[in-house]
């Protein structure tokens, strides 16, 4: 089994889509890189850390993007963001069966912070425009850098997020919280704390992630095919937003006093909650069945 966590963005994309179907748009040979990094004496990449293109999944046409954590933690700069926004807008013209976002990003690329922040807001608007046009957008999150900052918000604008335990999802990363608020607020070196707070298992139990899979490219592919087969037209109606509003209110009421993920899992009625991080995914899913928030 090939690890999704260890793979590069390109390996993930090629392994996820039907064999031989991926066609890249603006490949590295187009030499489109960030104009801002060289001012900081920082090396640039010829794809600016993101691969975008089209292909087939389960025989159906899809557009797909994969962020490369190995380049600046997958952070969004001007060019990186514009590639993702352009791909999403291409979906408005091509009407694929879905758009797949293989996210791995620390959020806004601080070296070009203003351009990155604006780029993320353009990605957000584009995601919502694609969904409003009836095309579902699915997120896969299992990379080494997780998905944080503006990309953490953008991911939750989509139809579904599938995670591995290793993929983390949040807004402020532990290092940022520790630096801003102090180590007693969040000790970023306490790996167990980081994973049970931000990792796939907790996100799945909370309802932030729709699915959880083992760390394997094949498992992510199966999950993406599953989402595609069950895909319905995105529901962005007032009734849908009101239902989400009640779910989120309910979460605050039920878990607002909890100090730790284990407290939340316990109040979900899960037996031996402290043991959840040790379970393999099939066993974890079985143990928590009907217990998700």
């Amino acid at each position: 089994m090939s690890s999704y966590y260890e793979a590069s963005a390109r390996e993930r994309l090629l392994g996820l889509l039907d064999e031989g179907s991926f066609q890249e748009i603006l490949p590295p040979s187009a030499r489109i890189s960030s104009p801002h990094l060289r001012q900081l004496d920082t090396p640039a990449a010829f794809d600016d850390g993101i691969i975008v293109g089209k292909g087939l999944l389960d025989g159906k046409p899809v557009l797909a993007a994969a962020q490369e954590g190995g380049f600046m933690g997958g952070a969004v700069g001007e060019v990186h963001g514009a590639k993702l926004t352009g791909l999403l807008e291409r979906a408005l013209d091509e009407k694929p069966a879905a758009v797949l976002l293989l996210v791995e990003s620390g959020g806004v690329r601080l070296h070009e912070a203003n351009a990155g922040l604006i780029a993320v807001s353009e990605i957000m608007r584009a995601i919502l425009a694609v969904r409003a046009a009836g095309i579902p957008v699915f997120v896969l999150d299992g990379g080494q850098f997780g998905c944080f900052g503006g990309m953490g918000i953008a991911s939750r604008l989509c139809d579904a997020v599938v995670m591995s335990e290793e993929g983390r999802l949040g807004l402020s990363g532990p290092e940022v919280i520790e630096t801003t608020m102090g180590v007693e607020e969040f000790d970023s070196r306490d790996r167990a704390l980081v994973w049970r707070t931000l990792g796939g298992k907790h996100r799945y139990l909370l309802g932030e992630a729709a699915g959880i899979v083992p760390d394997a490219i094949a498992a992510f592919r199966d999950a993406a095919i599953g989402l595609l087969r069950q895909a319905q037209a995105p529901d962005l109606s007032l009734a849908a937003m009101q239902a989400e509003h009640r779910r989120l209110a309910n979460r605050l009421e039920r878990f607002g006093q909890c100090r730790d993920a284990i407290d939340i899992w316990r109040s979900l009625g899960i037996e031996e909650p402290a043991g959840l991080p040790l379970l393999e995914i099939p066993e974890f899913v079985a143990r928590t069945q009907d217990r998700r928030a």
Partner: peptide, 15 residues
């Protein structure tokens, strides 16, 4: 920037 907000999924609330 707090652990509690992250624990509760603040990115989902912002979204």
């Amino acid at each position: 920037p707090s652990r509690r907000d992250e624990l509760l999924g603040i990115n989902g609330y912002m979204a």
